[in-house]
Simulated scan of single mutants.
Amino acid sequence: MSAPGWVTTPVTAGLLRGALDLERTEHGLLPHRLPARARAQCSDPQLAMAESQPSGVRLVFRSRATAVELDVLPTRRSYVGAPDRPHGVYELLVDGRPAGRGSVPDAGRVLTVDLSTGATTTRSGPVGTVRFTGLPDRPKTVEIWLPHNETTELVALRTDAPVAPAPAGDRRTWLHHGSSISHGSDAASPTGIWPAVAASLAGVELVNLGLAGSALLDPFTARALRDTPADLISVKVGINLVNLDLMRLRAFTPAVHGFLDTIREGHPTAPLVLVSPILCPMHEDTPGPTALDFTTVAEGRLWFQPMGDPAEVAQGKLTLRVVREELARIAAERTPDDPNLHHVDGRTLYGEADAAELPLPDGLHPDAATHRRMGERFADILRGIAQGA
């Protein structure tokens, strides 16, 4: 229970960064990373889960408060037979420096999925409170980064001193789109996902549209990127298309062109970085789809496996090698008319030497150390592009 004299501040758009839309619920405010128009055009439960998980979303305000409480109602997932997933982490930064972290393990909803049947059950729980105390008693900028992997409804913000929205400042805005790797799968904390690491090191303001399982060249995502203000834009594409075996090469090439064309309608001259997939040995030469190995689930661990046949590449099936070659060709084809388009081979972020040192724990997603490494490397790319702009 908060002490008398505390200030309750309504959570509004002015206090939130990284969200494209806010939904009022019966409990509070739910940040979305895709606008309502985009959400209305796709009923995929995976996309609904991914875009409602606030990867890169944070509360930012000015205050001299020494204590902060945030009431939240999270929704997290668990899987029958699989190891328990870590609880979502809330990270506190004071003037850009780490100053605390917390979780609400006994609060919120738990959605349990039986991967063998697709059946789901939901267990409801109460609102929880994450508390941060011992903050310096001076005017400062406070950031609370929300869990990158738990849908989070914001119920109430309380402090022991008044708060005000933080000025936007003069940092450039970086808008990024990618798969679960960009979303932050297997990262240890919201500021530990590789786009957040890169943004911090490069001194840019992140808007993260990394959408787990959903970097699929969807037109509504392209329009969201088109309509979102940004100074730098990056699109990392390929792995989800292979995972789902969603399209053949014939469809892939014009889809990439169309995606980039749509972004350019809203950002005709902004630096735009086209990033191909990082190394993933299982899909370098073997197409999708990707499936969970249920024998490993029974052993208490997760491992993914490719289900395609390399011989099908001749019929146009996509592998990561095919995707990289085609993205490089597309970028080279477009660059004469678009000098602000840049191409990055994803293997420069995580390649063969990295895989030998830091193998993908489930065959698909990087671990926390790899997120850090990728972020450091992409920060160099962002700084280089910014200097050349």
Rank of each mutant, 00 (worst) to 15 (best):
H283W: 14
E284P: 02
E284Q: 14
D285S: 11
D285R: 15
D285Q: 14
T286V: 15
T286S: 03
T286P: 00
T286K: 07
P287T: 03
G288A: 10
P289Y: 11
P289F: 09
T290D: 00
L292S: 02
D293S: 09
D293H: 06
T296H: 08
T296Q: 09
T296A: 12
T296Y: 07
T296S: 09
A298Q: 13
A298R: 15
E299F: 14
G300K: 11
G300R: 06
G300N: 07
L302D: 02
W303I: 11
W303L: 15
F304T: 14
Q305G: 08
Q305E: 13
Q305S: 13
P306G: 01
M307C: 11
G308D: 02
G308E: 03
D309F: 13
D309Y: 07
A311L: 12
E312D: 12
E312K: 14
E312Y: 10
E312L: 14
V313P: 06
V313H: 08
A314N: 01
Q315A: 12
Q315K: 06
Q315N: 09
K317M: 10
L318M: 01
T319I: 02
T319D: 00
R321P: 00
R321W: 01
V322S: 01
V322I: 05
V322E: 00
V323N: 00
R324Q: 05
R324D: 00
R324N: 00
E325Y: 05
E325G: 12
E325V: 02
E325D: 06
E326L: 11
E326N: 04
E326H: 10
L327Q: 00
A328P: 01
R329W: 10
R329S: 11
R329E: 09
I330P: 04
A331L: 08
A331S: 10
D338R: 13
D338I: 08
P339Y: 00
N340A: 15
N340W: 09
N340L: 11
L341D: 01
H342A: 09
H343N: 02
V344C: 02
G346W: 03
R347E: 05
R347P: 00
L349K: 05
G351K: 00
A353I: 06
A353E: 13
D354K: 12
D354M: 14
D354A: 14
A355W: 13
A355Y: 14
A355T: 14
A356G: 10
A356S: 12
P359N: 08
L360T: 06
P361D: 03
D362S: 03
D362Q: 07
G363N: 02
G363V: 14
G363L: 13
